Amino acid sequence: MLKQLKYTSILALSALAVACSGGDSGAGTAETPDGNKFNLTNSTKGLVGSKTMDGKLIGYNQNHSFYGVWVNNDKTRQQVRYQGTATPTDRLPRGAATYTGHAVRARDSVIAQNINGVQADGTMTLHVNFDTKKVSGKLGIPWARDITLHETDLNGNQFAGKASVLFNDGGRYKGGLFGPNAEEAAGMATFDNNPSLNTSFGGYR
């Protein structure tokens, strides 16, 4: 399982035993590009992380979903990610909800609060209208450009749309709603023309 982290200027991550998750609830099993597997369902909730064979996985583990980033030791490769147990479409609520939480990206900075090259102190605000089936939001990134998640359609328990930052409107975002009653949201924004902007996000309503 993943170990809980606290912000420090220098943070040692403990080694993690490989485990597979069972059942159909929780965040499931995460596999990193270098071959490690982690049982997120049975891991500590909140900001968590661990060393992997050739990097580290850091993110936020929610009750039914996970979002974060994997970065290799040389900091030449990264993977933003999210996963979880999707909400059954017949269990989506009515009305509107605002999800609040965090945003995570790979970033080395002496200004931004970061953990071994991962900035985990961003914020997420996601507005979901279940009646009009619309989604929009914003990712606040301290000491960097905020990401706008432009209004898009909610298709069942999933959404995908345009993302932009100041001077760059070439991004896309996608995500989903997780938990028995859409208690959680998670997703990621990616910029093919500038991967350093790639960010995962999530939170609770």
Rank of each mutant, 00 (worst) to 15 (best):
Q113E: 10
G46L: 15
N36F: 07
I141A: 08
A96C: 08
G84F: 07
R81W: 02
V118L: 10
L92Q: 12
T44W: 03
S25R: 10
W143N: 11
R107H: 13
N129V: 00
T125N: 08
G59Q: 06
A30P: 00
R105C: 05
R94C: 04
I111A: 02
G46H: 05
T123E: 08
F130T: 13
V118N: 11
A97Y: 08
P93L: 12
D131Y: 08
G101E: 04
F38I: 11
W70G: 04
L126G: 06
W70L: 01
T132V: 00
M53W: 05
K37P: 02
R105Q: 13
R91K: 14
D121T: 10
G49A: 03
G46Y: 11
G140I: 04
S136Y: 02
K45S: 10
L47F: 13
T85L: 11
N114H: 02
G137W: 00
G23M: 04
S109I: 11
G137T: 00
N63L: 15
Q113I: 02
Q79K: 07
G122Y: 00
Q78R: 11
I141T: 05
R94S: 12
Y67K: 01
H127N: 09
R107D: 13
A106V: 15
T100S: 10
V48I: 14
N36D: 14
H102N: 12
P142H: 10
T41E: 09
T89R: 04
M124G: 01
K56N: 06
T85I: 08
S136G: 02
F130V: 14
N61W: 06
T44G: 07
D74A: 15
K138C: 06
V69S: 09
A30G: 03
I111K: 03
T89L: 03
G49V: 14
D131V: 15
K51A: 01
G46A: 15
R81G: 04
V48P: 07
N63S: 14
G140W: 00
H102A: 05
N36S: 13
L40S: 09
T76F: 06
L57G: 05
V118S: 14
A106F: 15
G117F: 10
W143P: 00
D90I: 00
A96I: 09
A106T: 11
V135M: 06
A97F: 08
D146R: 07
H64V: 12
G59K: 02
S109V: 08
T44F: 10
S25Y: 07
H127K: 03
L47W: 12
I141W: 03
I58K: 14
A103T: 04
N36Y: 06
W70S: 04
N129C: 08
G122E: 00
N42K: 15
T98A: 13
Q62C: 07
N61R: 13
L57V: 14
T76R: 09
G95Y: 14
K138E: 11
H127Q: 05
I111P: 00
G23P: 01
A86I: 10
K134P: 04
V71H: 12
G59E: 03
L126E: 02
Q79Y: 04
G95C: 14
A112R: 06
G35N: 09
Y82G: 02
Q78W: 13
Y82M: 11
A96R: 10
G28Q: 11
D90Q: 13
Q62D: 14
Q79G: 01
D90N: 15
T87F: 06
